[in-house]
Amino acid sequence: MNVRPTLEDIRRAPKVLLHDHLDGGLRPETIVELAQESGYTDLPVADADGLREWFEAASNSGSLERYLETFTHTVGVMQTAEALSRVAYECAEDLAADGIVYAEVRYAPEQHLAGGLTLEQVVEAVLDGFSRGRRDFGIRVGTLVTAMRHQARSMEIAELAVRYRDDGVVGFDIAGAEAGYPPTRHLDAFEYLQRENAHFTIHAGEGFGLPSIWQAIQWCGADRLGHGVRIIDDIEVDGDDARLGRLAGYVRDKRIPLEMCPTSNIQTGAAKSIAEHPIGLLRRLSFRVTVNTDNRLMSGTTLSQEFAKLVEAFGYGWDDLQWFTVNAMKSAFVPFNERLEFINGVIKPGFAQLKWTGSRPLA
């Protein structure tokens, strides 16, 4: 008998996460402790519980720019090698506890230099934390080094991605406010990465519309789209029928992965509600959709909770959740043979076991 997954059951499923920001997933207790150790005095709330509530409240403004302001405090306490390694280690622990077997976690090295670290020292500290996390919790975490789109260090960061790609850095990304900062400003970095046969994703179609997506794909050559929610603007819906515009059709035909983050997309104003999130239509139209957390602290979420919200909103069952998960693993920036090992050796067997152990039948 097919069953509707519960949150408890979903936590046991072997999941894959492609879009998660290291500085958006700190434990509030860790922020407080790191602030005390480093002398950071700008926290808006001094205790962990109050700080958690502050982050979640500040993230619900409906503005991407306001949402991004919350990172001042997490980045502020991540300015030493010890802090970066600790945060990465705890990230691995938290993701593993949520049933995630493979994750790609991104961060911007250029934002962690205030304490005197070099870009290389930042990267190595984060890699150390995730390496220890893999040893202790069994989770494989690849990192994406991110360049800030309003700055001018993208070539340096791209070179870091290539230099450390055999040590755990699996790709490159650009992030930050989209409006006024098109991805083409960093075209030299993307062309360099392509020449080096390196992988990269681009935040696009979250705070800005179709031009951002078009540039990311056709000018910059992105392997994946961070969010890509506004691709919905190129789809006309008439009842059960949908007509895809040229760009939407291209994205679907080329199987370009969309790294969607439902809760975060609502917080930043990219979607109105879970029930109205474009992910429902895009899944029905068989786009390469993946489900992600974006910033677990700011959104007060986990990947299991994101899946549970989709189950509630769209009536999804285990087959749907496995489809999203296989999509994510197919789209990961690790070699093909490793993706197959995860899909055939971990994900499919794990979901097969869970499909018949839920608590209530699907309607």
Score class of each variant (00 low, 15 high):
6 T>H: 07
7 L>Q: 07
13 A>H: 00
13 A>T: 01
14 P>G: 05
14 P>A: 05
15 K>M: 02
15 K>G: 03
22 L>N: 01
24 G>I: 09
25 G>Y: 02
29 E>D: 10
33 E>P: 11
36 Q>T: 12
42 D>F: 13
60 N>S: 15
65 E>W: 14
70 T>V: 13
71 F>W: 08
73 H>R: 08
77 V>F: 02
82 E>T: 12
82 E>A: 11
83 A>N: 04
87 V>R: 01
94 D>K: 04
94 D>R: 05
101 V>M: 08
103 A>W: 07
106 R>T: 04
107 Y>L: 02
107 Y>A: 09
108 A>P: 08
112 H>N: 06
112 H>G: 06
113 L>D: 03
116 G>F: 02
117 L>M: 05
124 E>Y: 08
124 E>N: 03
130 F>Q: 10
131 S>D: 14
137 F>K: 09
144 L>P: 06
146 T>Y: 05
146 T>H: 10
147 A>C: 06
148 M>G: 11
151 Q>Y: 14
154 S>V: 07
154 S>N: 05
155 M>N: 11
155 M>V: 12
156 E>K: 12
159 E>Y: 11
159 E>M: 10
160 L>Q: 07
160 L>M: 01
161 A>H: 03
164 Y>H: 06
166 D>C: 11
173 D>W: 07
175 A>D: 04
181 Y>F: 13
184 T>K: 12
185 R>F: 14
186 H>C: 07
190 F>P: 06
195 R>P: 11
196 E>A: 11
197 N>M: 13
200 F>G: 01
202 I>W: 04
203 H>R: 09
206 E>K: 00
211 P>H: 05
214 W>H: 15
215 Q>L: 15
215 Q>V: 13
216 A>V: 08
216 A>H: 01
217 I>Y: 02
221 G>S: 00
223 D>F: 12
227 H>P: 06
232 I>G: 09
235 I>M: 10
239 G>F: 07
242 A>C: 01
243 R>N: 13
248 A>Q: 00
248 A>V: 02
249 G>I: 07
257 P>C: 11
258 L>H: 08
261 C>I: 07
270 A>P: 04
271 A>K: 09
271 A>H: 01
277 H>Y: 09
277 H>R: 03
290 T>V: 12
292 N>E: 06
296 R>I: 08
300 G>N: 03
300 G>E: 10
301 T>I: 00
302 T>G: 02
303 L>I: 10
307 F>H: 09
310 L>N: 03
319 D>P: 04
320 D>S: 11
320 D>I: 05
321 L>I: 06
323 W>R: 12
326 V>A: 02
332 A>Q: 01
333 F>Q: 07
334 V>R: 04
341 E>K: 12
343 I>R: 04
343 I>C: 02
344 N>P: 12
348 K>L: 14
349 P>Q: 00
350 G>V: 03
351 F>I: 10
351 F>D: 03
356 W>D: 15
358 G>C: 04
359 S>P: 12
360 R>G: 15
361 P>K: 13
